[in-house]
Each structure stands twice: as C-alpha cells, then as structure tokens.
Design a protein around this nucleic acid. Structure first.
Lengths: 372, 372
DNA sequence: AATGCAGATGAAAACGATACCATGACCTTG
DNA sequence: CAAGGTCATGGTATCGTTTTCATCTGCATT
C-alpha cells in the first residue's frame, strides 16, 4: 500500500509537502498542490491513521458506550452520533454494556488503549468511580441520558421529569386514580426522574401516592412483566400503568396477556420512549418521546466541537424537551370518525397527535441546566 | 500517559520484555512477568494501539458496513458482530450506507485509511466495481445478506429463497390465489431471491403468475406504501401481500389504512424479517425470520478465524436457515381457545408458532453453498 | 545596497510499539 | 568434554506520519 513517501517521490516533493497538502495547512503553491493531488490519486494513496495518530495524538475516532443497541431508543441515538461523526470524518466505535459494569469497565480499557479522541457514554449507574478511567485520563466525554454524581461534565439528555409528569397528568385527566408506575433501577437517573415526574403529577392533582404502586426493577421486558404480575397478585388493581421505558411496557403487555387483561379496555398503558413503529402497531402506545436522534447528534456535535476548538468552556448540560404522542393505549378516540372505537373493527393504523411537553421545574432543582 | 518504556524502567527490564508479557508470546520468567504486571498495574499502563498497529500491521478492529442500523434486522446483526468481536478484543467501526453508493464509497475509503483488519459488509448492490477497493487492497472481507457478482468471497446470509417459498406456500395453503409481492430493488440479491421464492411457490402450486402483482421498489416504508397503493389503484385486488422485508410491510400497513382495508380481515400480510416486538404488537405479522444475530455472529467469527489463523482456505458461503413464525396477520387461529377470534376482543399478546423452514433447491443453483 | 520578512519547501527527529537478530547462561547428549 | 540446543532477555531498526526547525528565494523597505 502506497505511503506518503511514495506519493512524495512521484510528485517530486518531500513527504512534508504531501502532508501539508493532505491536511490543508500552511501555504503550498497551487501548482505543487496539484501535482501532489495527482500523485495521490494515481497511487490510490490513503493516509495511514495509525501512523498519523501515533505522531499527532489524534485518532479521529469516538467511542459510543451505551446499554444495548438493540433497544430502538439507543439505536436512534447511535444513528445520530454516527451521522454527526461521519460528517466530520470521525469513526465511531460501538460498545454495548448491557448495563453490566464489568463489560463497561472492559470497554473503558479498550477506549483508553484505542486512544479515542472522545467518548459518548450512557453509564450503567451514577457512581463516579465506575467511570473513573475517563476522568483520570482526562478523555473528553459527553454523558448522555444518565447522570453521574459529582462530575462536572458535558451532558445531553431528554427531559425525563417533564415527560413523566405529562404522561401521568394525561392519565389523571382521563379519570385514572389508581395509577401504577414501574421503573428502572434506583440510582439510574432516568429511572429516578421518571418516578419524580409521576409523584409530582399525582401530588399536584391532590391524589394520594400509594408507595405500593411504585415498583423498581431493571429496564428489561422480563422485569416489566414480573413487576406487573406482582402488582396484580398483591391485589392492587391499578387501572393504568406508567412504564418507565419501552422494554418495561412490553413486559406489561406480556403480563396483561397472562392476566387476561386487555389494553386499553381493562388497563391503560403509557410509557417513556417510543417503539419502532408505534403508530402502526397496536396497542398504539401513548408515549413520551425523547428526541433520541437529536440526543446523539447534539452529543456528538458538542464533543467534536470541544475536540476541534479545544475550548475549555465550563461543562454544559443540554436538556432536550420531550414530546407526548397520544395514541390509543388509554382508549381515547382522537377524532370523531377517524380512529377506531374501543371495540372493533381492528384499526390498521391509528391517527396520532404529537404534543410538545412544557418543562416543569424539578422539585429538587439542578444546577441551572441549559434548555433549548 | 505511561508508555511501554516507563513500564520497562519501573520493572527493571527492557521494553521488549514488557511487550512479550503483554502479548503472551515467548517465554518470560514467572518472576519477571510478575514484576512487569505489577508495573503495568501501578502505572495504569494501556498499550497504544496506534503505535502497536503501525508496527504490527494489525489494528484489532473490524468495520461493519450496513444499510441502516435503525432497521431491527440490522440492529440485531450488528449486535451479533459486536459480541463476537468483543469476545476477541476487537473493536467494531459502525458504518451506515443508507443504501447510498456515495456513502458506501466514503466508508470504503475510511476503512482503507483506518487499516482495519477486516470488513463485514452488506453492499448496496451486486456490482463488483462498487466494492473494488476491498478487493484491490485485499482486505479480508465477509459479505453478508447480499451477493456480489463475480466475487469469490466469504459470505454469510439467511436463506431468502426458502423463506419466501415457505411464506407463499403458507398463503396458498390458506386458500389465497391472488397474492401480490412487493420487493426491493432489482439487482439486490435478497430482493431477487425472495421474488424467486414467490414464483417457485406459485409455480409449484400450479397457480398462474401475474406479473402485474409483482412490484419492485426500494426497501423502505414509503416505497411499500406506494407499491401497495398502486396495486389497488390499478384495480388489482390481491387478497394477500408478501412484503420482502419489514419496512415494506410497514408501508403496506400505511397504505391499508388509507384504503380502508383491515389486516387480516380484508388483506393478509406476510413479510420477510421480524419486527422488534412482533409477538406483542398487532397485527402480529406472520413472518420468515433469518437468524439475524447469528448472521452477524457467524460472519464475525468467520472473519476473525481467517485473520487469526491466516488460513487461505477457499471462500466459504454460509447459508443460515430461516424460520417461519406464524402469527395472526393472515387471520389464522393457532389453537382453539388460546388465540383471539377474528373480530374481538383485541388480543394483548398472540400465541405464536415457530416453524423451521426446510431448504428448497434454487431454480438456478448456486455454486455448492454450504448449509448448516 | 543592506535589511527584514513572508512564502514555499525540506531535513531530521520523534511518536510508542514490535520484528529481528544477538547474547549469555544453562542444559543435554554422544 | 566439546558441540549444540533451549531459554530468558536485550539492542536496534523500523513502521508512516507530523512536528520542529532550517533553508532558500524573492520582494518590499529603509
């Protein structure tokens, strides 16, 4: 494979000049530049990033560390990151942690050894010790979706609190009083915040908060099924369930099947995060959606901006507003005559209504986050 | 950041010995090894892959080039690749082409410059010219899902022909005679093969093949909708549609909504590739599924095997069998009393039946592919 | 005419690891 | 006991770039 020296020989210049042409730095005579470009083209020369980054300390690559690319939320985030990176010629290393600290630690080591320029990470938990390698090595990082305690770092996330609040208010507005919430692990900030939004909405409506209706598990289908099953087995009979993410909602559906409950007739269901084809597939969940693609895009742009400008501004927090998509899983008919009635015939596709969610103030306010 | 020399000094050995310890090559005295390991640990040393691969010509990374990670089929493939790579300490570079040749070409350039050890690619089309950079530079490659004409290369793919054949036979068995097929671009082998399977099943059943019922477009929702709409607008009235992938099936659902057709009552629908939560979300599509995770896993294993063994065996083709998952989108009740009737009430979750698909012989047989 | 300066280019060193070959110590074998 | 082999280790060159500094040319300034 051709090297920079081959190109230099062919163009009758020194490797240094070729390097200058490639990187568009300093002044090179237009005529020389043309000769170099011609040589590059003729030889099919492509710079060797290993050599380049050994010398220049810039790898031109990012690592994206997230729980599981298989979840449509993360898929879309990844797509946003990838697009932003690609636009600036950066490569993206994909890392799935499965919410597993050991895997995460392994990837942090990999990331250090790859000497990636920056990292976008949705950490397994909020414990700063678990992301220590990033801080110790001062690797530019953007934390997405989650929070890490005591770490002043760039962050991009959706507005979980307001989204949860809006969903629960929606349920309350429909007359529900016994609303259960199933959420993810304590300590995972999104799970916590969604519970906060739930509490806030109930409190504001003057409804009692029954702690037995709040369940915490993991962000996975099986956990959602177990929690739902437990709720009903313990004799609590919520008329509506708020699932803190889409996987949990799928668990609710599984449990409902087993319990002989129909959605929406017997049980209303809302959740955070959309499904892949939410408006095409029944039960047409009513959801709060974070702008997943934008979370990825903005995170990557923020990171790349830092890398290229080298600016040492103070860390920023970007909270992207969520939207509520009202569909059918609470039994509402959106427009007279347009949507299906509650009983039959089966709809093929539901009309949906997308509503911006206004931010609500956090009960325990954060350090002046930036809204946009 | 600590270098190998720092470690060497601290352990009182030469960098060469440290290198040997890191790479587990040659014999190092246990006591020396321990000293080196201790030094590594104390300094938090992580090898610099750039330097390493500059010298050793091995990047320890793979590129995965596929149409769109957002499609659940590709998501799952990616997950398989990632898991296999991670297990052997390889990093995965993610590249989305959006079926766009320009983007694909850009990534091939990136891949060359990154000097990745190997590439797993689902090429946009079968034109060998479009993947020429891989061949010219002799980059070890595994082609997945698609085919490239005149290229003897390792391949891993699902059995499209048999899957399509099985689905159409299923429809025929239910009494359908007017079955339409909407597929992807001509020249994309999966799209072509699925059409072949369709023809084969009809021919075998002695049914006439109406060319107007076969439509070719792109593998995207909007294209599926347009083709379905066109079918009905032209006065053809198929009772069943076979969509060549999940995105096209979503397009059928969109079109059906507009046309006032219910699935399955008015129109049966089957497709290739599963949806993310196919058994939880109505219309519970009956599908042929390729083992997407396995496609990714096997492709990565095949590639890594080649890289590490350096074996120059002849290229292999792995055709993984598809399965049929019979659900509800053709209006069948699986078990008396277990599934829902055709009319109501709405099911929450459908029982499903997963059936292995026996391979069928290709009408134009391929070069002795390997089955497993 | 001497000086200064900017532009264009090149020579050599350096980045951090591994490949290759060399060396000395110790062991085996006929 | 000499010859040869194995083991543990080290010295040095090298991978392909970019960085740093030096050189040279030509032109404007004084």
């Amino acid at each position: 494979m051709a090297t920079i020296t081959d190109v230099a020989k062919r163009a009758g210049v020194s490797p240094v000049t070729v390097s200058r042409v490639i990187n568009n730095v300093a002044n090179v005579m237009p005529e020389t530049r043309a000769r170099v470009l011609a040589a590059i083209h003729e030889l099919g020369y492509v710079p060797n990033v290993a050599a380049r980054s050994l010398r220049s300390k810039r790898m031109h690559s990012l690592a994206l560390i997230l729980p599981d690319i298989t979840n449509s939320f993360w898929t879309t985030v990844a797509r946003g990151v990838e697009d932003a990176a690609q636009a600036r010629g950066y490569a993206v290393l994909l890392c799935n942690t499965d919410e597993n600290l050991t895997k995460q630690a392994g990837y942090l080591r990999l990331v250090a050894s790859q000497r990636v320029d920056g990292v976008i990470i949705a950490p397994c938990d909020a414990d700063p010790a678990h992301v220590a390698p990033l801080r110790e090595r001062a690797i530019p990082t953007v934390v997405i979706d989650r929070m890490v305690t005591d770490w002043e770092v760039d962050r991009v996330r959706g507005d979980s609190l307001s989204g949860a609040y809006a969903l629960v208010r929606h349920l309350i507005g429909l007359g529900h009083v016994h609303i259960a919430m199933i959420s993810g692990p304590c300590g995972t900030s999104t799970a916590d915040e969604r519970v906060n939004g739930y509490r806030l909405a109930l409190a504001e409506a003057g409804l009692p908060i029954d702690e037995r209706l709040i369940r915490r598990g993991e962000f996975r289908i099986s956990s959602g099924e177990a929690m739902t099953r437990a709720l009903f087995q313990e004799g609590l009979r919520p008329t509506a369930i708020f699932a803190a993410n889409n996987a949990l909602a799928m668990g609710v559906i599984d449990a409902a099947g087993g319990l002989g409950l129909r959605i929406p007739q017997d049980l209303a269901l809302v959740c955070f995060d959309d499904l892949a084809n939410g408006s095409r597939l029944f039960p047409f969940l009513t959801v709060a959606v974070q702008p997943a693609y934008e979370v990825g895009l903005k995170a990557a742009q923020l990171l790349l901006g830092r890398l290229e400008a080298g600016a040492a501004d103070p860390p920023r927090e970007l909270i992207l507003p969520a939207r509520m998509i009202v569909r059918y899983s609470c039994g509402i008919r959106l427009k007279e005559g347009s949507g299906p009635g509650l009983s039959l015939p089966l709809p093929v596709r539901v009309d949906e209504q997308s509503i911006p969610i206004p931010p609500v103030a956090s009960p325990a306010p954060l350090a002046a986050p930036e809204r946009r």
